[in-house]
């Protein structure tokens, strides 16, 4: 009689609620990786996550640990407050590009500059996904979105912001890495990077941020496989994957 052994299953830190994200969305994968890491570090009871405004606003439905909601772009300052009041808790922000790089730019830069001991997961899908795919500060040059139907024009809208390169000179920032989720090796690397950012907080290293180049197949009008290919060919060309800063 053959025996059976489960070797991979849904992480404990995810609830039974199916993700409401679109098919092939990078948010689902990022949620899953974070849940797996929290299971591995066995710290579900001491985690407090700060969810953004954007597609991931419903993160508290999917994660089986404490999640609070911040006003648009204000997740890092809410996380700062929680971490200062409860230094023994593990606090991380989960933010999209519209949230972190546009309306929350001031909060992001000042939190990083203060070197708060928090981890930030930055999901960059190059548009405002929740509201229907408008142009974001991170939209690529000549990328067609609903508010740039002829493609992003540098004359009017400027160049896409590279957040990690912008933050790297700040002395309070300890760890910055950009990852993608397009195939199995890069998913494994992404998990490693997020885990490192989390461990940095546990060992009181300081501010860490991981930028995840994430697919938005619905707004890019591509199927998930083609969306991942587009990240490999175009998005990671402008936003190079790899470690930007590591002084841990």
């Amino acid at each position: 009689m053959a025996k059976e052994r489960v070797i991979y299953k849904k992480p404990e830190s995810l609830t039974d609620v199916p993700f409401t994200y679109c098919w092939g969305c990078g948010h689902s994968m990022a949620h899953k990786l974070i849940a797996e890491i929290i299971d591995e570090l066995d710290m579900r009871e001491k985690v407090i996550a700060v969810a953004p405004v954007g597609c991931a606003v419903f993160a508290y439905d999917f994660w089986d640990f404490d999640v609070t909601e911040a006003a648009h772009g204000r997740a890092p300052v809410v996380a700062t407050a929680i971490k200062r009041v409860h230094p023994d808790k593990f606090v991380f922000c989960y933010q999209g590009d519209g949230d972190l790089a546009s309306i929350g730019m001031a909060e992001t830069i000042h939190t990083a500059n203060r070197g708060e001991n928090i981890s930030v997961i930055f999901i960059n899908n190059t548009n405002y996904g929740m509201t229907g795919g408008q142009m974001a500060p991170t939209s690529l040059i000549s990328q067609v979105t609903t508010t740039s139907p002829y493609g992003r024009d540098v004359k009017n809208a400027g160049y896409p912001i590279k957040m990690l390169e912008l933050l790297s000179p700040l002395q309070g920032v300890k760890y910055l890495e950009r990852v993608k989720l397009t195939d199995v090796p890069s998913i494994v690397k992404a998990k490693k990077a997020i885990k490192k950012a989390f461990v940095n907080q546990l060992t009181n290293v300081g501010f860490s941020m991981v930028e995840v180049l994430s697919a938005c197949p619905a707004n890019w009008k591509k199927d998930p496989v083609k969306a991942n290919k587009w990240i490999d060919e175009e998005v990671s060309e402008y936003f190079p994957v790899g470690k930007i800063k590591d002084i841990t």
Binding site: M1, A2, L14, F19, K32, L181
Partner: peptide, 17 residues
């Protein structure tokens, strides 16, 4: 299972005697 974004796949190893 690793590439599934929705954590919908459970992998079971069959160990033959």
């Amino acid at each position: 299972a690793i590439s599934c974004p929705d954590a919908a796949i459970e992998v079971i190893e069959i160990i033959e005697d």
